[in-house]
Nucleic acid binder design. Structure first.
Length: 269
DNA sequence: CGCATTTGACCCGG
DNA sequence: CCGGGTCAAATGCG
């Protein structure tokens, strides 16, 4: 467990001359996150406001734009840094996966990925509080407890990966246990299927994912309203986990500076 | 009854 | 050898 990043202290401002592109990426990330937050805030507004859905639509639009720009920039930087390969992508897909305890196990001699260095697929890492509704259908295919982490990592894959050959994957891991729990979401392989789920907005059923069916919610906020009770995602762990709560005491709420890990096995602990 | 999730086993890279 | 990622049989839910 001596595997620690030599950089025990992450400096917010790297001394090396950052490209304008990197700066733009950071800002875009921040903007994307903020927009997501805005979307949540909007979503929690009373539906009675007719403009709410329109606003949500706009927010979603903005988010997608930001995401696209971010993605493009990151791809550019990625291939600039790594090899000069033009991103062939997972063209040859070996049918065999990892598991399969069948007796007949053909050893996969073909190199799945990772040529000579940095050929890893695109990887977008960000944090959000609502990993469930990003507009895609995800199918969970695994869950693993990561060392030195408090919460397990959940592995999702595009629901149409079979028919549409969509290799998009998504790893979700709870970052902290605060009440608006944040989740670190790692998104790999852009969606090749354009099967975005029915848009949330529109007039009709507004309760697609969030069940406000019985929530009267006369008042916008209840003083004791804290148990949001996420309809999915993340288990509630055993009640024996306490340890010392000294980790990450850096501020509560208010996020002026986010910590974006980029292809680095960094951990909070 | 069909589908998504669960969960232990397996495989691979470091 | 260990840890992370994936598969696929079993189970639960609609």
């Amino acid at each position: 467990m001596a595997t620690r990043m030599p950089n025990s202290e992450r400096s917010p401002s790297p001394p090396s001359p950052l490209d304008q592109r990197d700066a733009a990426i950071q800002e875009l990330q921040k903007g994307s996150d903020l927009v997501k937050l805005l979307g949540e805030q909007l979503g929690r507004l009373p539906v009675q406001l007719g403009c709410r859905d329109d606003a949500l639509t706009s927010v979603r639009d903005i988010s997608m734009s930001l995401d696209s720009s971010l993605y493009a920039l990151q791809s550019e930087r990625d291939q600039h840094r790594g090899s000069s390969s033009g991103a062939g992508g997972p063209g040859a897909v070996t049918s065999d996966g990892g598991g399969g305890r069948s007796s007949t196990r053909a050893r996969r001699t073909t190199h799945r990925r990772g040529k000579h260095g940095e050929e890893h697929p695109r990887r977008r890492i960000f944090t959000t509080t609502t990993p469930e509704n990003d507009g895609y259908h995800w199918r969970k295919y695994g869950e693993k407890t990561i060392l030195n982490t408090e919460f397990p990592k959940l592995y999702y894959r595009c629901g149409y990966s079979d028919e549409r050959k969509c290799q998009a994957k998504k790893y979700v891991q709870q970052a902290n246990r605060k009440h608006p729990p944040e989740f670190t979401v790692t998104l790999t392989n852009e969606h090749t299927c354009n099967t975005l789920l029915p848009d949330q907005p529109s007039s009709s059923s507004t309760s697609q994912v969030l069940d406000f069916t019985k929530a009267s919610m006369s008042s916008p906020m209840d003083p004791h309203a804290d148990t949001a009770m996420l309809k999915e995602e993340e288990e509630e762990e055993a009640p024996s986990i306490d340890e010392s709560t000294r980790i990450m005491s850096t501020s509560v709420s208010s996020y002026g500076a986010y910590d974006y890990n980029e292809l680095s096995p960094q951990s909070w602990k």
